[in-house]
Nucleic acid binder design. Structure first.
Lengths: 212, 212
DNA sequence: TCATAATTGTACTTGCCGGTATAGTATTAA
DNA sequence: TTAATACTATACCGGCAAGTACAATTATGA
């Protein structure tokens, strides 16, 4: 009867990290593909090749799983660093590169699906929205602002309000195309059209902000 | 036993149009407020002051009701005619008026809720998306294009591609604010900020497209 | 008036889903 | 070896919602 009252932990079989990963992956895919409501816990468990109870041993409830999945998805969706340029890169070249990168990012099936998910859950889950915004749009906006600030400092452009200008630029790059794709209308982005669009926007932007 | 095989119609009690209207109104309100999934047929019937069976006698199923409600909502949401100007209105004034009107429209609770609804249902119900786009965004875009074309014709602006320019202008007016509100983050539009934003965009636009 | 059809209230069927219970098997640290 | 814990399979509970059945009532055109 000499039994320790509470071996605080570290006894017995440990949780399998592979199963955790499998669950998370399945959740990411299903939530993105079919939305929150249409993705049942049973379906997620099945897709992960795991029993429902195991799922519940890793995540308290559907909401916790959803939050974690979205967070994870956000983190893995901002790899591109279009914002690294050497000192002497002409600003026009930088804008073209950023513009094209941002256009492709924001109109990718991945990003569109994530946007739809977030917007659909906006009212029930505002914390997730904040998470998403801070991880995605906000960072891009910050980087863009910095770039314009630098261009202003080096007299390449005349941008007294870099924050506002950054928003204008990114809004134009996103363009009407993005809304149509979000709503599920219209063609997927075509390479030619994309390049044309970006060049058009950059020209417009340079005309408006070129240093006198 | 002399009975007509099928008195094709027009006999018996007619359907009450007031009830039809009440159902449609309740559906519009609930779908907008709480989304598709969270609006039960029972709740809609109750809100309309009507029995569930009456509801089903007017609409075959939930999807039919949804489609009709969205169509109706789209039609009633495009009243503003910011696009009527006398010949000699200076283009800058016209842009300011249009910009402010569009900004307020697109950031109103009504419009935001409708956008969320459409985007959330994008995959399951692409027909509804098309409906929405044709009734709303497309018309605004067309009108904007016409205006720019006219300004180009009268040498007030130099806009060789009015369609693209119209998209750019409206995209900027909508701005980052709209995404944040769609996602449920951030403040409702403030009058001061709105005016400032619109003026900023119009200035930028004029700089980029002023006739030489 | 009278057949016809709309409307109502209630209860029902059917199906799905979130979450839990049980009971047994597998795995691991001590 | 042993105790603790993860994991599985299956079944179950409670709730909710779409749509239907029924039986009664009410309004309308013929």
């Amino acid at each position: 009867m000499t039994r320790r009252p509470k071996p605080p932990s570290t006894a017995g079989r440990p949780k399998d990290p592979a199963k955790y990963a499998a669950i998370l992956n399945a959740a990411k895919q299903l939530f993105i593909e079919k939305g929150y409501g249409a993705s049942s816990m049973a379906a997620i468990a099945a897709a992960a090749g795991v029993s429902k109870l195991t799922l519940y041993s890793h995540f308290a409830d559907k909401d916790a799983l959803f939050t974690t999945a979205v967070k994870c998805k956000c983190e893995e969706q901002l790899p591109p660093v279009f914002f690294q340029f050497s000192e002497d890169t002409p600003i026009r070249q930088a804008l073209l590169t950023i513009g094209l990168g941002f256009y492709n990012l924001v109109n990718s099936e991945e990003a569109l699906a994530l946007h739809r998910l977030i917007i659909a859950q906006a009212s029930q889950n505002p914390r997730v929205s904040q998470l998403f915004y801070d991880a995605g749009p906000r960072r891009v906006l910050d980087a863009m602002e910095q770039l314009l600030q630098a261009a202003h400092g080096s007299r390449q452009l005349d941008v007294p309000q870099p924050r506002a200008a950054a928003e204008h630029f990114l809004s134009m790059i996103k363009g009407g195309h993005n809304l149509r794709l979000l709503a599920g209308i219209g063609e997927p982005p075509d390479v030619q059209i994309a390049r044309q669009h970006v060049e058009d926007v950059v020209d417009l932007f340079m005309r408006a902000f070129s240093a006198r």
